[in-house]
């Protein structure tokens, strides 16, 4: 078996973090919402943002994943490139699997009129406006991005330690502040508005894919020079 597959199998040993935990979090939020929707007797639909938890979890999982497995894999004579490829395959597979499940749940929710109690947890305005393929791409692309974003943060920590994280936070904060001032001063908000105006979630999901790819290679560049 080649090493990349070996790395995927290593990740798969941790089914709790990759599969059970995110669904336990989402489904417990869902069950609470279901109870509330069942108890509240208004005519209105109950639309909640509980689904965001799975995206936040994906980022946290990306951060913790590198932290736990990088030193372990290198200790078992895995080269950094194979660790990267295997981990990216695992992230992609998880995102696709989760994306498929979320799309399915979104349809079930739609067909069952919000589980019979007008609860909209998976089928959300704007997010799931498109057809099945488009919904799937939105879910998957955003999950992918969150995993890789977390992965990137953790890779930065592996490469440059605490100093790296602090420096990055301060620099991003400064750049962010300057940008906000620049936006206000030169009135660029219209441009931002024009960019998002009329753009579907599907379209944003597609745009996010190349961003994720670039980000993953930044993570790789950092890990390539990381030591254990």
């Amino acid at each position: 078996m080649n090493t990349v597959q070996g790395v995927v199998k290593m990740h798969m040993k941790d089914r709790v973090s990759w599969f059970y935990l995110p669904w336990i979090i989402v489904l417990s939020s869902f069950v609470v919402n279901l109870f509330i929707a069942g108890l509240v007797t208004t005519e209105d639909q109950l639309v909640t943002g509980g689904l965001a938890s799975i995206f936040v979890y994906a980022m946290v999982s990306g951060i913790i994943g590198v932290h736990h497995t990088f030193a372990f894999a290198l200790g078992l004579s895995v080269r950094r490139r194979d660790y990267f490829s295997g981990s990216m395959m695992m992230i992609a597979m998880t995102s696709v699997g989760t994306g498929l499940l979320l799309t399915l749940l979104s349809y079930i929710e739609m067909w069952s009129d919000g589980w019979g109690v007008d609860l909209f947890f998976f089928h959300l305005p704007y997010i799931t406006d498109g057809n099945a393929v488009q919904q799937f791409i939105v879910f998957t692309s955003f999950l992918l991005f969150m995993y890789i974003f977390g992965w990137g943060i953790s890779s930065l920590f592996r490469r440059f330690g605490k100093t790296g994280l602090y420096t990055m936070s301060i620099v991003s904060l400064l750049i962010g502040t300057l940008l906000v001032y620049a936006f206000i001063y030169w009135g660029w908000w219209n441009g931002v508005h024009d960019f998002f105006e009329g753009r579907s979630a599907f379209n944003l999901g597609l745009l996010l894919l190349p961003v994720s790819v670039v980000l993953s290679f930044v993570g790789y560049a950092l890990l390539r020079r990381s030591t254990v």
Binding site: T3, Q5, K13, D14, V16, F72, G75
Partner: peptide
């Protein structure tokens, strides 16, 4: 390379570690 400071994933059991080593 077996080192005293080797890190293992928090969620791994002894079995998982040995199975992973067997693959690699």
């Amino acid at each position: 390379f077996i080192k005293e400071s080797q890190k293992y994933p928090d969620t791994f059991r002894v079995k998982d570690v040995l199975e992973t080593a067997a693959i690699l």
